[in-house]
């Protein structure tokens, strides 16, 4: 019965190994989530702009090129807001700083929280779009029927690839759930202790990364 004993040992070994692979692959599926985020934030290929404020780079404006920057705003079910932009598109030189006003309107009579999530197309332009100030770095709170205008300040890096002539920036509004709202509120309160200027979006840059994290991780 030697060979049978051998087969039994072999079966056990095979089973242990396959189960190890199984567990490894299950872990791999979850490991892909942070890996994907890291990969995308390095390459920018999912069009997600780095949600932290950039400082202005004072470089010479490249006046030989005009880049057409388009803005698209989208609402989403569950949030009775309207988002509009002062102009649908503008032409800028690489290196030039530009500002455009976005207006949020709460069409309902109750207060609510929302967040505008950006996406850049073509994705190769993502890492060359530097946002100096953006409402998308944090959630917005609107009282009933409130209307709020916030500027977006951005700069296109001079090393923008030559083949890009048009950049489209899409903002999609998402409602912020109650749970997240509280976490974000906590964070806001904490940071407002350090920063009195919380209501001024441009000066609010130092604490925005933290707030922004809260939206992603409070859950």
């Amino acid at each position: 019965m030697d060979s049978q004993e051998q087969a039994r040992v072999g079966v056990r070994r095979t089973v242990i190994r396959t189960i190890a692979v199984l567990i490894g692959m299950f872990g791999f599926a979850f490991a892909l989530v942070p890996l994907y985020d890291v990969f995308c934030s390095i390459t920018g290929i999912n069009g997600k702009v780095d949600a932290t404020a950039k400082s202005v780079v004072h470089e010479e404006v490249d006046e030989s090129r005009y880049i057409n920057v388009q803005f698209i705003t989208r609402g989403s079910p569950g949030l009775p807001w309207q988002m509009s932009v002062e102009m649908r598109q503008m032409s800028v030189h690489p290196g030039q700083m530009a500002e455009v006003d976005f207006t949020f309107t709460n069409n309902s009579s109750s207060e609510s929280w929302g967040r505008a999530v950006p996406s850049v197309s073509p994705s190769t332009a993502t890492t060359h779009l530097r946002k100096i100030s953006c409402f998308c770095f944090q959630e917005q709170q609107l009282q009933g029927n409130e209307r709020l205008t916030i500027p977006l300040v951005f700069q296109l890096a001079r090393d923008l690839p030559d083949d890009i002539n048009t950049i489209t920036l899409v903002y999609t509004l998402y409602p912020i759930e109650h749970v997240i709202q509280n976490a974000a509120l906590d964070n806001t309160l904490k940071s407002s202790a350090n920063n009195e200027l919380i209501n001024d979006p441009i000066n609010n840059l130092s604490n925005t990364p933290k707030n922004n994290k809260a939206a992603g991780e409070a859950i």
Partner: peptide
């Protein structure tokens, strides 16, 4: 969670 929900940082 927000693995696949852009509103919460997912994709």
């Amino acid at each position: 969670t927000s693995f696949f929900d852009a509103a919460g940082g997912g994709d």
